[in-house]
Design a protein around this nucleic acid. Structure first.
Lengths: 169, 169
DNA sequence: TTCGGTGCAAATAATTTGCAGTGGT
DNA sequence: ACCACTGCAAATTATTTGCACCGAA
């Protein structure tokens, strides 16, 4: 149902390629900083905040500043490679938005973590709704908020938060 | 399909009642300012920004300040009567979120206007997805972005923007 | 060599908070 | 009367901008 995520994903090289193509089309320049930030961003291919991205980038180049991260992310958004998202109260997050791939979000309101999923039935139904109003559908956003098994009090229940921790250690 | 908006909506009185119930349960006080802001908010029962709400409230009581509006909206959100929403880049918007009623959004990316709709098939499928991850679903947000008939270039096409204007005159 | 890019610090914008006085209960 | 609430202004936080210097084309 959603393992598309792990196969058809554009690879880093192709994403960087798209980015560079956009820059040169607009007569803008490729710089170390932009490349570094874009690579970190693509590598994280999930949800990342400006601050996290800054920290990742500073690990390799400590002199990178907030402004450059903001500016680079704005470029990435312009060329459709990043999408701005503002969940609950927290900071603004960005995510990769390759054309081929789309996912929706399932968010635990207790541990705050975010799972991605994809469901074709929902997508089709959305198409139908839009058509029924005479609209042509361009894009959408679907976020489900709920409680993960752990938060629901299921003992030994699985929690996306911890899952994530395990993966990143 | 969406004329439910004009029938089953909780009325102002009932909404104010829920608000007051919440306040007294929490041993908080009902004040003129809170009542005024809440009423303006419910009356607008669509999407409204802090600033718009402040202006509406100031029309009746010019001394209302931003802080009070923020604080009141936070209370309304706590008791489930308001929901914070951050669309594109603009300001944060709030909308009424009565328990009985739920709607999703269909937004024209050209004329910026927002239609509400409700589709049970999608709702059910969302439930199923959440369950398949072991989540219990609490609430969701669905926004469809597209082009309205007019924007698609259909001559004489219908445009939610103008529709709205007609209704509110 | 030429502009656009970068880093920093200062500017803005959005939201929150401290406090002295006001007002529900 | 008590303690929460309000309005204001100051504080915080997130994001943008101005500018002198740097570096890709």
């Amino acid at each position: 149902m959603h393992d598309r995520r792990h196969s058809g994903l554009p690879d880093l090289e192709s994403l960087m390629g798209q980015f560079h193509a956009y820059l040169s089309k607009k007569q803008l320049k490729s710089t170390r900083q932009r490349d570094l930030i874009a690579q970190k961003f693509f590598a994280a291919h999930g949800h990342i905040s400006i601050e996290e991205l800054l920290n990742l980038s500073r690990a390799e180049n400590p002199r990178i500043g907030y402004a450059t991260v903001y500016r680079t992310l704005k470029l990435l958004a312009e060329c459709g490679l990043a999408a701005q998202r503002r969940f609950g109260d927290g900071q603004t997050m960005y995510e990769t938005a390759g054309d081929t791939e789309h996912h929706d979000h399932l968010i635990c309101i207790e541990c705050q973590h975010v799972l991605e999923f994809q469901n074709d039935d929902i997508e089709h139904e959305q198409e139908r709704v839009a058509r029924s109003f005479g609209f042509s559908l361009v894009r959408h956003r679907l976020e489900l908020y709920g409680l993960c098994p752990r938060a629901r009090g299921i003992k030994g229940g699985w929690c996306p938060n911890e899952e994530q921790r395990k993966l990143s250690d």
